[in-house]
Design a binder for these strands. Structure first.
Lengths: 145, 145
DNA sequence: GACCAACGTACCATTCCGATAGGATTTTGT
DNA sequence: ACAAAATCCTATCGGAATGGTACGTTGGTC
């Protein structure tokens, strides 16, 4: 189980935006620089997030992106499902004439998606950022031991 | 979250073998035909499973594959991890100088792999086959309603 | 009206996935 | 002994997905 680069970059940008919330707009260029990401690629990701109503954008000088809602209101599962862009062609639910092996595979797939959805849906962006800053301060405090 | 074809085919073959356990060797060709899988591709998968000590094989006329142990002794998690053949280049555990975003991504990845491992490790091949045959008999009985 | 940044489109390079081809090796059956 | 049968092994390949770049357009600010 591995997240795509697209998802990873999107998450990293959103985490940055959440830490700045509710301050004003941040430009794609700056986000890319802070996290060391390819600028144009990131732009396309941010655009998708805006379309998914996770971000608001402002064009022109002094423009940029910001979260459309408070981090508390944003669910990580929703975010990632948007980023992964699952097309998953509806799985062709032809329940008839399934071999035993096919039934087994289907069962496992269901269990896996349920488990991952549970993990991701139980986490808000606020919680995620909280974990991160805790880990960060922990990391920082270790320099002084 | 989706299993690769390689994993899917391997599972389907193993489920068939588990249903026949502890009977004698089944040929790749027959497994491929029963499940409608490409023969040569399946062969390479079965070979990997043999190397992973899930199967025993016998060369020559009357040869084939069979489980190396009882289905009860085979863990689905082990099986799938073998089949996916994740190379996952050790994640480069450079704990220093991580951006907040990177920490967040790492956290999510850990949670996801933990959750999926939990699901898969809690299932033996015997249990999987049991689920399948139950579902199968249910499906069959519906023909007679 | 000059600049700025989001928006949009098209394209490209590389990797991975699923699969096939063609054989070499080992055992069984006659 | 020999032929058939099956696993075992290596190489290759087409196509799709992924990750990324280039270039231009639109809309907003000073």
């Amino acid at each position: 189980m591995r997240l795509s680069k697209r998802t990873e970059y999107g998450l990293r940008a959103v985490v940055q935006l959440a830490r700045l919330w509710p301050r004003t707009f941040v430009q794609s260029k700056d986000l890319a620089q802070q996290e060391g990401l390819p600028n144009k690629f990131l732009e396309s990701i941010l655009l998708a997030l805006r379309r998914g109503d996770f971000l608001e954008s402002k064009v022109g000088s002094g423009g940029g992106y910001r979260l459309s809602r408070a981090p508390r209101e944003i669910n990580v599962g929703d975010l990632i499902r948007r980023l992964e862009g699952r097309l998953t062609v509806k799985e062709e639910t032809s329940t008839d004439e399934l071999s035993p092996g096919e039934v087994a595979v289907r069962l496992i797939n269901e269990r896996l998606t349920d488990a991952t959805d549970d993990v991701l849906d139980a986490m808000t962006l606020e919680q995620l950022v909280e974990h991160v800053t805790r880990a960060g301060s922990l990391q920082q405090s270790m320099y002084y031991i």
